[in-house]
């Protein structure tokens, strides 16, 4: 339910893939003499001296250093983009009239309340919630781990009828979207230690 850089990854893979493909095919075309028709002299037995000469040009080390820096920045930024993002909503402003004071609630406060509420649903073992959107158009993304023998339909019904109703009631507006991802807890690792009566 956290967001990944799927679009950037695919774009990056396609761009680098195309560059590699074109470069590789160009080298192979030269090696097998296919380029000789287009560029006379570039026969398979020609030396790579013109390529090596580029590296022998003055200032080529400085240019290479700059290129290395740019590549390093791209690599590090791409790696950093892999960290899953919650993309929670900005702190919600919920006052009626800002002149008499503002009311601030962070998305995590509401998410924590929804998580507690979800764990009150029978057969839910663990729950995570993320609040996205704005105070006027809130979106809830939920993940619940239910017991392997749970009645999944009953869990979904309880989330639809009770948990999202509570959240909508607290926020004072209908939820613009609710997403529920259901996981099945295979072994009963997390035992409930207390019961609220």
């Amino acid at each position: 339910m956290k967001r990944l850089a799927a679009g950037a990854n695919r774009t990056g893979l396609i761009i680098v893939g195309l560059i590699f493909l074109v470069a590789g095919l160009a080298v192979l075309a030269l090696s097998f003499g296919l380029a000789a028709a287009v560029a006379p002299g570039l026969t398979p037995d020609a030396k790579l001296q013109p390529v090596a000469a580029v590296f022998a040009l003055p200032f080529s080390a400085v240019i290479a250093l700059a290129a290395a820096l740019i590549l390093a920045i791209i690599g590090v930024r791409w790696l950093a983009a892999q960290v899953p993002r919650k993309d929670s909503a900005k702190p919600l402003r919920m006052q009626e009239d800002a002149r008499s004071g503002v009311t601030t609630v962070t998305a995590n406060v509401i998410a924590a309340a929804v998580e507690d509420d979800l764990e009150d649903t029978p057969e839910v073992v663990d729950a995570q919630a993320i609040l996205r959107g704005t105070a006027r158009r809130p979106e809830l993304v939920l993940h619940v781990d239910v017991d392997e023998r749970a009645d999944v339909d009953a869990v979904v019904a309880d989330i639809a009828d009770r948990v999202t109703r509570n959240a909508s009631h607290a926020l004072g507006v209908p939820l613009s979207a609710v997403g529920v991802e259901i996981g099945i807890a295979r072994s009963r690792q997390r035992r409930q230690r207390s019961v609220r009566l």
Partner: peptide
């Protein structure tokens, strides 16, 4: 979708199906 939510989407990942 319940009346207090405009959109309601439920999914099970394939891992949940296996479990």
């Amino acid at each position: 979708a319940p009346e207090h939510a405009e959109r309601f989407e439920v999914v099970l990942p394939t891992s949940a199906l296996s479990n």
